[in-house]
Design a protein around this nucleic acid. Structure first.
Length: 281
DNA sequence: CTATTTGTTTATCC
DNA sequence: AGGATAAACAAATA
């Protein structure tokens, strides 16, 4: 059991790329900004390249200068001078890091390495390869980047939008609805659980069953959990408060920070869900 | 050898 | 037609 806890803490706390973790990893490539790509090394057969034109990527990026990067939900986009765009999705186990070439200690899951001027390397590591690499050269950005749904922290993400969506997905559990990226981009497994915990809503409930008061609460909490996670984890991977479910959810025998009663872990909507029956009714 | 874990896409059922 | 649901994908670990 102790081993299981350690497994959970190591794998899940360090590697779950949701909204804030993606933002954290995006910045790991900042040391490359302003530098030119000299060489692109790809493990071409790996699954992360399943949707990309490898030749176009290589020819497009070599000689290009990294200008900046952004995230939208769990998606990342690295912009290069000349309208070259490199898209990365971390999937379940993806990580980004930058290393001086002399210190580059290549791991067998380092599938994409950009070698830049000034001896810096940008590495995409992904053991399970649910991640994804995209490339496009297009003024204004390729459709895989431009056509993404509005972010939950933007003004376009309104109560009315979310309200309509809940009615359309009326029969789905709230847990699975919160994981739908077309409405809640960036929300992943732990964030969905955290949001429902803070709203005191049972994750089994169908979305149509929410009262208007609960919908108000859900809307505010989606924004709150997103902005706090970005502030705490997204900037420097700090620790969230113990009043959050986050710090208790992986421990076997973990207890609800509100009631002190046992937390429950069960599969809802096909995903492991941690919640507090004594708090979330 | 099996169960489990993460996110998204695809297939299938209703 | 389109919503709901489950399997598939890869790899590591208990």
């Amino acid at each position: 059991m102790v081993g299981l806890v350690r497994y959970h803490q190591f794998i899940l706390l360090l590697h779950m790329p949701e909204l804030a973790e993606v933002e954290y990893y995006r910045k790991q490539w900042n040391p490359g900004i302003g530098q030119t790509v000299e060489r692109v090394e790809m493990n071409a057969k790996k699954r992360i390249f399943r949707e990309v034109d490898l030749v176009a990527l290589q020819q497009g990026l070599i000689g290009a200068v990294l200008v900046g990067s952004e995230t939208k939900g769990k998606q990342m986009c690295f912009r290069f001078k000349g309208h070259h765009y490199l898209g990365i999705h971390l999937g379940m186990t993806g990580k980004l890091r930058a290393e001086p070439i002399k210190l580059l200690n290549k791991d067998k899951h380092d599938h994409l390495v950009l070698y830049l001027t000034q001896q810096i390397t940008l590495v995409f590591n992904d053991p399970r390869m649910f991640g994804l690499v995209r490339y496009g050269q297009q003024s204004g950005g390729p459709s895989w980047w431009v056509d993404l749904p509005p972010e939950v922290l933007s003004d376009i993400f309104t109560f009315e939008r979310m309200d309509r969506f809940l009615d359309r997905r009326s029969k789905s559990s709230l847990k699975s609805v919160l994981l739908m990226q077309e409405m809640f981009p960036g929300v992943g497994n732990w964030m969905a659980d955290e949001i429902l915990y803070k709203c005191r809503i049972n994750p089994h409930r169908q979305s149509a069953s929410l009262s208007s008061k609960e919908r108000d609460s859900l809307f505010e909490t989606v924004k709150h959990v997103s902005s706090e996670a970005l502030r705490v984890i997204g900037i420097n991977w700090g620790e969230l408060p113990d009043s959050w479910l986050f710090n208790h959810r992986w421990k076997d025998g973990g207890v609800c920070p509100e009631t002190g009663c046992k937390l429950l872990r069960e599969k809802i909507g096909g995903r492991t869900t941690c919640w507090s029956p004594s708090w979330q009714g």
